[in-house]
Design a protein around this nucleic acid. Structure first.
Lengths: 158, 158
DNA sequence: CACAATTAAATTATTCACAATTTAATTGAC
DNA sequence: GTCAATTAAATTGTGAATAATTTAATTGTG
């Protein structure tokens, strides 16, 4: 008897690329990054740098650790990225007075100026997406929900 | 008169991190990769290598270019990745007879053996997600739809 | 046939992601 | 107050993503 389960895309066992949620997610994330880069590259910024900047627009003077918890990135990623932003003149890194282990990151005038670049980059993305605020919000919620479940070691009963 | 539009998360102009679809997407993609890695790392595989392998499970003997079109990756990413898979003994790369510019990638017995690892990795993800096949399929469709719109240079009327 | 244009893959360089280790500052137990 | 434990960031090493360039094979035009 030859089983041909492998050729039946049943959802549970399929390994077909087009059935993979993970591939769709991976592709979407890279497409999103790519669209942001169209605008950002003219200003010498990268997409992860954009994410760091909007964190600082929201609250300036965060430490490396606070940025890392917010963005889910560790110092191995952030330290060199922040050094590049400092060389560019967008931020200043300074050891905290009260605890010299901490490094505080502050926007310069040039750094605050990137706020307009960020808004323009975002506008391009929104124009392409053509989604209503409601749709955007829903989709974002679904993604956040999924992320939370993926991060949850014990799915309810293990 | 002081405008305070910046502090009102209106969806259109907000630069708050939690309002960013892009960040939710970025975080979800990394969380997904992380869960796959939990299983894959025990076998010395990475997540992008997993994606290449399931392409080859679906159709063996693809060329570098065909893999690239399927996964949206160029030779700068694929060549070193495939060399690592070859060193691992999972695939063999061979110039095509009829056109020596092409490099065909074929699974070895060891490579085909990773099919079980791939299924197990996928099972862990599905268990965490706790989504029905219908939900998975819908979500995948939404992501693919979004990717297509992001890739589309001219959104209908430019 | 000869030679320009095209195609396929590889290479080089920059940046990001992440694991593992190291260094330095701070805290806590005694 | 001393010293172990903890915390914060930096460093090191590997792999991946992408742009730009290079090399080699093939195709097409004359």
């Amino acid at each position: 008897m030859v089983k041909h389960a492998d050729t039946i895309p049943d959802g549970e066992n399929s390994l077909l690329l087009d059935d993979q949620l993970c591939f769709a997610l991976h592709a979407a994330a890279r497409a999103m990054s790519s669209v942001y880069m169209e605008t950002l590259r003219d200003h010498g910024l990268t997409y992860p740098q954009y994410l760091v900047l909007i964190c600082l627009f929201e609250e300036d003077g965060l430490t490396v650790g606070q940025l890392g918890r917010r963005l889910q990135l560790d110092s191995g990623t952030l330290t060199p990225l922040l050094k590049r932003l400092e060389i560019d003149g967008a931020v200043i890194r300074r050891r905290a007075n009260h605890d010299e282990r901490r490094v505080e990151v502050r926007l310069t005038t040039k750094g605050r100026g990137y706020r307009d670049v960020a808004k323009r980059a975002r506008a391009v993305v929104l124009q392409r997406l053509r989604m209503t605020n409601q749709e955007l919000s829903n989709f974002r919620g679904q993604l956040a929900n999924m992320t939370e479940r993926l991060r949850n070691e014990n799915p309810s009963d293990e």
